[in-house]
């Protein structure tokens, strides 16, 4: 019987080694798989390249990973936030490399990787600093910039419900990068608010089919925390 469900965060992040490229879902803290990131910290992997929309909030989740000095480079669209002080200090000290990418280009580069495309021509960023040195082309009179796909060794994402085949649904705006990152990584690991029996998820409503998911671990999420309160 196939089961992608593992019984601990440590088992979920097993094999994440030094130098890996890791996509981490979330927009701010919504959709941030904080337990998996904690597992990655505990696992000790260093010299990581991280792909996320932001560069961490406060001192938990991604910010904790940065604070533990495990990240060599971050690929993101919006690192500077009111509470991104961990990243800010590392960046100012020259201790982390930043590849700044317009948010839509971040999304479509991730999508390109997941869809097996070699690259994409995108209109976003044309004529700006963020397109400097990149190949451009006029297509039907409109200028485009050639952008490369972003592949990852691992994707850490947060979902709402999951079954043992790795089918996933998401909750509200916590969906954000989860579905596209799940497709772009060799090994996608999901932390799920809830594990349900096979067949309980409406096939019409499954957002990420299990083919894109390798491991699932149950971690009580916002919904259950809200209910407990």
């Amino acid at each position: 019987m196939i089961s992608k469900i593992v019984d601990s965060v440590a088992a979920a992040v097993e094999g994440m080694g030094d130098g890996a490229t890791v996509m981490i879902g979330g927009f701010g803290t919504a959709g941030m798989p904080a337990a998996l990131v904690d597992g990655l910290i505990a696992g000790g992997a260093r010299d990581l390249v991280v792909v996320n929309n932001n560069a961490g909030n406060g001192e938990t989740g991604l910010a904790a990973l940065l604070k533990a000095r495990r990240v060599r480079k971050i690929i993101c669209s919006f690192p500077r936030q009111a509470d991104s002080y961990v990243f800010d200090a590392l960046y100012r000290a020259g201790e982390i490399e930043l590849e700044l990418v317009p948010q839509g280009n971040l999304a479509c580069r991730i999508e390109a990787a997941g869809a097996g495309l070699g690259a994409i021509f995108t209109p976003t960023g044309y004529g700006t600093l963020l397109a400097e040195g990149k190949e451009t082309r006029i297509i039907d009179g409109r200028p485009y910039v050639l952008e490369m796909p972003i592949h990852a060794d691992f994707a850490l994402i947060k979902c709402h419900r999951a079954d043992r085949w790795g089918n996933l649904t998401y909750r509200k705006t916590a969906r954000n990068f989860g579905p596209i990152m799940a497709r772009a990584a060799r090994t996608t690991i999901a932390q799920a608010d809830r594990i349900v029996e096979l067949g309980e998820l409406d096939p019409e409503s499954i957002v990420t089919p299990g083919i894109f998911v390798k491991r699932v671990v149950h971690v009580a999420g916002a919904e259950s925390l809200a209910q407990a309160a």
Binding site: G104, G125, Y126, T128
Partner: peptide, 20 residues
């Protein structure tokens, strides 16, 4: 971006919205 040397650049969705 102000282009100031000590500024931390952040772009978010601005470039996509501007051209889209």
């Amino acid at each position: 971006h102000t282009g100031a040397p000590d500024a931390i650049p952040a772009v978010g969705g601005a470039m996509d919205l501007a051209i889209g």
